[in-house]
Simulated assay, not measured.
Amino acid sequence: MSRAAVLAFPQTTFGRPRWSPDADVRFWVAALLSVAVLACWLGLLGRPLAPPSGLRLWSGDLARGNSQQLSDGYSLLHLSFGALIAALMRRYNPRLGGGRLALTVVLSAVVWEAVENLPPVITLFSAPAGAASYHGDSIVNSLGDVVFAGAGFVLARQLSWRGIVALLVGIELACALLIGDGLLWGSLRLAGLA
């Protein structure tokens, strides 16, 4: 097999399984239940429902509103997370239908949000030099992040592989400019390499 064949990405779109109302309902119920479990989990961890200063759709202030409002600069990373999970699942499990793939993205985002708000992880994210002030997410912000991951899935579903790569690179650059952070930069910082 030639090297070009190994590196080539397929230009196909996601498979469209036969429509089944029962399957669609099960996937939606499972996704909604997982989001409800996340909200309860965050409440048990003592995360606030919304910021005490009042809820806004967007916060550009990382010093005070980081991960408290419905969306912020880090919401873009959740958009790329959803697109990346969808792209990886498409690559390695191309027979996975749209409903199952969407549920995989939602469950992945829910698990990430549940882990991200554990006290040791909050400490880990706020410890590196240059990291934004992070004290955990509000419940509204976590639910918004799950929605952004779902939007990333919807975007990835419409794009070719090249389009997905362009989207991920664009989001990384936008995050670097907007918030001085990103998936790559944050990973390097956590590893002590930046």
Rank of each mutant, 00 (worst) to 15 (best):
A151K: 03
A36Q: 13
A127F: 10
G82H: 02
G99A: 13
L168W: 08
L184F: 13
A109T: 05
S142F: 08
S20T: 10
Q69A: 11
S126E: 14
D24R: 15
G192V: 05
L168P: 06
A174F: 11
A8Q: 12
A30F: 14
G65E: 13
S160A: 07
A31Q: 01
P119W: 03
W41T: 04
W41M: 02
A149C: 09
A8T: 14
L190R: 09
V146P: 04
Q158C: 03
R100I: 00
I164F: 04
A8N: 07
A4H: 13
I85N: 05
D72K: 03
S2L: 09
S133N: 12
L183T: 12
V169K: 03
L44F: 15
S126R: 15
L79M: 14
R162G: 15
I171G: 14
N66H: 10
L84T: 15
F153D: 00
P94H: 03
R100K: 04
E116K: 05
G186P: 04
L124H: 10
L155P: 06
S34P: 12
S126K: 13
I122N: 14
S20R: 14
L38N: 01
F9V: 09
R95G: 07
G163N: 04
Q68N: 00
S133G: 11
V37E: 08
A151W: 13
S108I: 09
S59G: 01
A50C: 13
W185T: 06
L76V: 00
P21E: 13
A174T: 14
V154P: 04
W19K: 06
W19L: 01
S108V: 12
N66M: 08
A39C: 07
L101Q: 13
V6S: 12
S34G: 15
H78W: 01
G98F: 08
T12R: 05
F125C: 00
L159D: 02
L167S: 05
F27W: 09
L79Y: 11
R26E: 03
A149P: 06
V37R: 07
P51K: 03
L77N: 05
A191Y: 06
L7A: 12
R3P: 02
A87F: 14
R26H: 04
L159E: 05
C40R: 07
D22C: 03
A83R: 12
Q158V: 04
G65Q: 01
A127Q: 15
P51L: 03
Y74W: 15
G180R: 12
P48A: 12
R157F: 01
D61P: 02
G150I: 04
A4Y: 08
N66Q: 01
V35H: 11
A131T: 15
I164K: 09
R26M: 04
G43M: 06
N93V: 07
A50G: 07
A151P: 06
G98P: 00
F14K: 00
L190C: 05
L188N: 13
D24T: 15
D22K: 13
L33S: 14
T12Y: 10
A23I: 10
A5N: 05
V6H: 10
L118V: 09
I85L: 11
S71I: 03
D72R: 08
C40I: 10
S67R: 13
A31I: 01
L38G: 07
V140G: 14
L38P: 07
